[in-house]
């Protein structure tokens, strides 16, 4: 909340007040305008922000995300969700909100592409199709869902 007036820390660090009430918990606030991955790397790493990427020593360096329009959509939706959580605690960051709007628009377009190719993503959107194709296999948890066709 006090960001801005304080000297900028490194990207893996955040701001703390110089004095604070005793017996309270303090996590450093992530600073505005943090470094960002592109959407594919964001999904692959599980965060949009390199500063918050803190992997376990046994983990592979980045998760493999398959190619294709479904994974593209997952990546765009992930960035929207990640920026949403950031904005919940940084609601006044206008730049982040502009980015949120940009990615929401891209996700909406990608959603339309996926629906055109694979069928509706929500039951409601089945109304845009010629017949009731909502039940069509595979469902998201099926192995075949992620097979490259």
């Amino acid at each position: 909340m006090e960001n801005g007036s304080i000297t900028r820390c490194g990207d893996k660090s955040g701001t703390l007040p110089s004095c604070a009430p005793l017996a309270t918990g303090y996590v450093p606030f992530q600073q505005k305008d943090p470094q960002r991955y592109d959407q594919r790397d964001a999904l692959s790493n599980g965060t949009l922000f390199p500063g918050l990427n803190l992997p376990f020593h046994l983990a592979v360096p980045g998760s493999k995300v398959p190619a294709g329009n479904r994974a593209d959509l997952q990546a765009l939706c992930f960035v929207v969700a990640e920026l949403g959580l950031y904005l919940d605690t940084h609601p006044d960051d206008a730049e982040a909100f502009a980015l949120f709007k940009q990615f929401s628009k891209m996700a909406k377009e990608a959603k339309a592409d996926v629906e055109k190719a694979n069928g509706p993503l929500t039951q409601k959107n089945t109304a845009d199709f010629d017949k009731y194709c909502w039940l069509k296999d595979p469902w998201p948890w099926n192995y075949e869902e992620n097979e490259v066709k």
Binding site: F29, G46, T89
Partner: peptide, 25 residues
């Protein structure tokens, strides 16, 4: 499996950060 677990694990760290910021607010 580890591909997915790694993603889920990282989400815990991001959520911890956001809850911590929320606690401060």
């Amino acid at each position: 499996v580890n591909n997915v677990i790694r993603f889920l694990r990282e989400r815990e760290i991001v959520h911890y950060q956001r809850f911590g910021e929320c606690l401060r607010m």
